[in-house]
Each structure stands twice: as C-alpha cells, then as structure tokens.
Amino acid sequence: MYNNILYPQHISWNSLKDSIFVFDEITNKMYLLKGVSREFWMLILHNNDFDDIIKTLAENKNIEYSVMRNDILQITKRLVKNNLLIWS
C-alpha cells in the first residue's frame, strides 16, 4: 500500500491567484485546479505523506477526516489517472 503522493518528473506547474495550472510536458496538455484540489496540490509541495495531507486539510476546513479522505481520494484518482500525480 502506497502512502506517499508525488509530482511526476514530466510536469510543470504554476500557482496564480486562486488557481493552479499544471502542464503535462509529455502530452502538452494544461490542467486547471481550484478549491480543495488546489490546496491539496500545494500541500504536496511540502509533505508527500498522503495521510498527513488529509489531516491538514481536514483541520484547515474543519471537516471530518473520513469525509475529507473520501473527497481527496476521488481527486487523487483523477490526477493519477491523468499522470499528474504518482503514488510511491
């Protein structure tokens, strides 16, 4: 079971105001992240531990850990499916 979540080597990204723009350098596609997806993305920059990130997000948003975990798992699945994040 993987517990660390990482940016893969082939992405670039930028934070602009309330948005994150992620660039896939293989496909040349650009993705836009907002809201909790954006906060999740920013937290990965400082800590790759998935559970730690969920805890931080749950605390910041005052939401139950299990609810936040479900939400973030769905977001992560989509990001992993598009090769924008990898489990390690």
């Binding site: 930028n14 602009l16 105001k17 948005s19 723009f21 650009m30 993705y31 836009l32």
Partner: peptide
C-alpha cells in the same frame, strides 16, 4: 485554460 492563464497573469500583474 490557456486564455484564462494569461488573463489571470495580466489581472494580477504576474510575469509568467
């Protein structure tokens, strides 16, 4: 998305 990116950059005076 590309247009939104450059529009945001302009609106926030950010050199991207």
């Amino acid at each position: 998305i590309t247009d939104y990116f450059y529009d945001l950059a302009f609106l926030n005076n950010t050199p991207v």
